[in-house]
Design a protein around this nucleic acid. Structure first.
Length: 477
RNA sequence: GGUCCCAUCGUCUAGCGGCCUAGGACACCACCCUCUCAAGGUGGAGACACGGGUUCAAAUCCCGUUGGGACCA
């Protein structure tokens, strides 16, 4: 394969948001293309009209862009091998099928679902491998005319050559498929729509794909697509089948495992560079110690030969840890923007200057922007102590909280240092432990037992609101 | 049921015959730091699925078994 000649693609079906599994496939394709200075193509496989939506295309496009994966050809950017939506290519598929029909590489099949089912059962009963028996392949012209006259619906099947097929996979090596398992399959349904097997194969040929990097679930369809391509007189691309991403139960990752869409991670406040880094390492590794990679480093280092063959379990905890790392490294203004935006989504209008002032308190301890919002909200809205905090604010604390308020009220300067000095002095006078001295104050002021550093928090909250909260807690108790 | 894929700590993985008394990361435990929680630091526990071969030598090669999974039906 000449350098620069690499062409690969991601071909999502727009039936929902971008699944993290597809995101990883997209990433690997993109990295492979960029590494080799080739082209990355986005193709929309929307032939399933009932489930495909315009909105989903938008979401997928946004998610890919958010991740930083740009495409050289496809929706919104065009290209020399379009159109890039399969619903706009239906005529191409029909003509292709017509050609295969004329050349005897495909044939009409009039079998009804009922007949197929009946023969399948019979084959099973005889202990044979079920699968299409090729009945319509040898129909005479007369028989065909008779079926047509009966008004039978006609599908088109591809005539498999009846030979064993070896697929050379860049990740798995050679895989052999026996001819006995490669039965003639439908390429054009009776309603005139192409099947996945045909459409993807035709597009990969016409779009000049040199490499097809996709999920392992498509490995079994490869020998069929290769034969279709050969029947079309084309040279099949090189294939690389990625192991699946599974959930904690080792089942393919799906909605029931919770978060699977890139969109969700974005909303929760994960950074794209964290998701990319995590996904890159989910099924690929560079060496035995390197954990963090920028997109540029990935482009430089990515290599299909180092892709794993084992299904990988998606580990949200590790992703979250990694996100914390990127959050700590992120630019201050970017974080302020993200926090302001996330606060707004919760109905809180926070002045950017206030968020900027509070940033040092949260950037070390948040793992997601959303978590940061949880730490900061007490600064912007009145808080109602949560259950644990409430328990610390019983009547026996009222006097103490009242005293804390009095001491703070008398402060000349409202700074973290002054607040700390006052609270520590009281703590020492009363011989209290840190826990007994500070936790009730934290509960009253932030409404939680877990918060950013107390003295800084009080300083940011301001005198009036702090005193009000302390006294409210004292009276409520 | 048939075909195919896969098999190292709980998880992601390094390992491609001797460097392995198996390395790193997340999670976990302990300690340090400490106003809570984090972050950070130090230390710890934790894996080659099993059985046969091949070889002077196997986590690494071959064959079986078992166990997962995909696809087709």
């Amino acid at each position: 394969m000449p350098e620069g000649g690499v062409r690969c693609r991601i071909a999502p079906a727009p039936t929902g948001s971008l699944h993290v599994g597809n995101a990883r496939t997209a990433l690997y394709n993109w990295l492979f293309a960029r590494h080799h200075g080739g082209s990355f193509v986005l193709r929309i496989e929307d032939t399933d009209r009932k489930r495909s939506t315009e909105e989903a295309i938008g979401v997928i496009v946004d998610s890919l862009r958010w991740l930083g994966l740009d495409w050289d050809e496809g929706p919104e950017v065009g290209g020399d091998y379009g159109p890039y939506r399969q619903t706009e290519r239906l005529e191409i598929y029909r003509r292709t099928v017509e050609r295969l029909l004329e050349e005897g590489r495909a044939y009409p099949c009039y079998c009804t679902p009922e007949e197929l089912e009946e023969r399948r059962r019979a084959a099973l009963a005889r202990g044979e491998t079920p699968g299409y028996d090729g009945r319509c392949r040898s129909l005479s012209q007369a028989e065909r005319r008779r079926f047509e006259a009966e008004g039978r619906r006609r599908a088109v099947r591809f005539a498999m050559p009846g030979e064993d097929v070896t697929v050379h996979d860049l990740i798995r090596g050679e895989t052999h498929f026996p001819a006995s398992d490669l039965k003639d399959f439908v390429i054009l349904r009776s309603d005139g729509t192409p099947t996945y097997l045909l459409a993807a194969a035709v597009d990969d040929v016409l779009m000049r794909m040199t490499h097809v990097i996709r999920g392992e679930d498509l490995l079994p369809s490869t020998p069929r697509q290769v034969k279709v391509m050969e029947a079309l007189g084309a040279t099949p691309p090189r294939y690389a089948h990625l192991p699946l991403i599974v959930g904690p139960d080792r089942q393919p990752l799906s909605k029931r495992h919770g978060a699977v869409s890139v969109e969700w991670y974005r909303e929760q406040g994960y950074l794209p560079e964290a998701l990319v880094n995590y996904l890159a390492l989910l099924g690929w590794s560079y060496d035995d110690v390197t954990t963090f990679f920028t997109l540029e480093e990935l482009v430089e280092k990515f290599d299909l030969s180092r892709v794993s063959r084992n299904p990988a379990a998606f580990d949200l905890e590790k992703l979250t840890w990694m996100n914390g790392h990127y959050l700590r490294a992120a630019d201050e203004e970017r974080l302020v923007g993200l926090l302001v935006e996330a606060l707004r989504r919760e109905g809180i209008e926070a002045p950017p200057e206030a968020v900027r002032a509070a940033l040092p308190l949260v950037r070390e301890r948040m793992h997601t922007v959303r978590e940061g919002v949880g730490y900061l909200r007490f600064l912007f809205v009145e808080v109602k102590p949560d259950e644990k905090a409430h328990r610390l604010l019983g009547p026996d604390r009222a006097g103490y909280l009242e005293e804390v308020a009095r001491r703070l009220e008398g402060l000349q300067e409202w700074t973290p240092e002054a607040v700390e000095a006052a609270l520590r002095a009281l703590k020492d006078e009363r011989g209290l432990s840190s826990k007994d001295a500070f936790q009730p104050v934290r509960a009253a002021v932030t409404g939680r037992l877990v918060s950013p550093p107390l003295f800084e928090s009080i300083a940011l909250l301001g005198r009036d609101r702090t005193l009000a909260r302390l006294r409210a807690a004292a009276t409520a108790g």
